[in-house]
Write a protein that binds this DNA or RNA. Structure first.
Lengths: 108, 108
DNA sequence: GAGATGCGCTACAATATCGGTAGCAATCGG
DNA sequence: CCGATTGCTACCGATATTGTAGCGCATCTC
């Protein structure tokens, strides 16, 4: 079952697994929103534009299977691995800042 | 129309736009596959597990609007911005390698 | 102990998105 | 003209996502 998290590619290369999972709706956003502090299910929902509980729960299950997110008494939080992935998202944020300043608004 | 590429969030923060677009099926994969050399539409299709032309074309249109990908006589290629984003994907690749070695296979 | 609140989560139907197949117009080389 | 390749669209069935309602549980407060 866990292996079926790989939607498309069959190579099994880690990057493919990752690109696949991250390419699902709200996955990146969830990791982003959890980067600073743990959040409850409903807080997460609120921060992610009121994503449906169905989708959110699905994504959270996947992320827990991949050991990027865990769920304890405080709510949902990034694991050690999730945090290091979150760091990459911070880089992405900086990149997005530069990109937005230089690319004409009409293109975005 | 171009602004409508933002699916969920209404903040307009660059990172949100980016997380939104990258979180669509095949977007990350397309950027990944183009990181080394330009590819024709059909080559891209082949490398992306034979993604349907419908989806591929949609993603490519979006990426062109965002000026991350361009289309010339050689085929599809990353723009300057696309390339710098591709660099981030290389970091992600390295991260995925470490992650895969340390996280039990059953979780992936 | 009876609300009232917040929690994670599920059921179900509607909708949006994606996939698979076929095939077209344009271009190029021979 | 012929065949091969290009980018791409039309069509339709399959899958993923959304929106809404609400359940069972725990925790407070009175």
């Amino acid at each position: 079952m866990a292996a079926s998290t790989t939607r498309g590619s069959t190579t099994g290369r880690p990057i493919m697994v990752l690109l696949d999972v991250l390419g699902r709706r709200w996955t990146l956003r969830v990791l982003w929103e959890l980067r600073e502090a743990p959040l409850t299910f409903r807080e997460l929902q609120a921060r992610c534009d009121q994503v449906s509980p169905t989708s959110l729960n699905k994504r959270l299950k996947e992320l827990r299977e991949l050991q990027l997110v865990r769920h304890d008494e405080r709510g949902y939080a990034l694991t050690r691995w999730g945090e290091s992935l979150g760091t990459q998202l911070l880089d992405l944020d900086r990149w997005a800042g530069r990109w937005a300043r230089r690319v004409p608004h009409s293109a975005r």
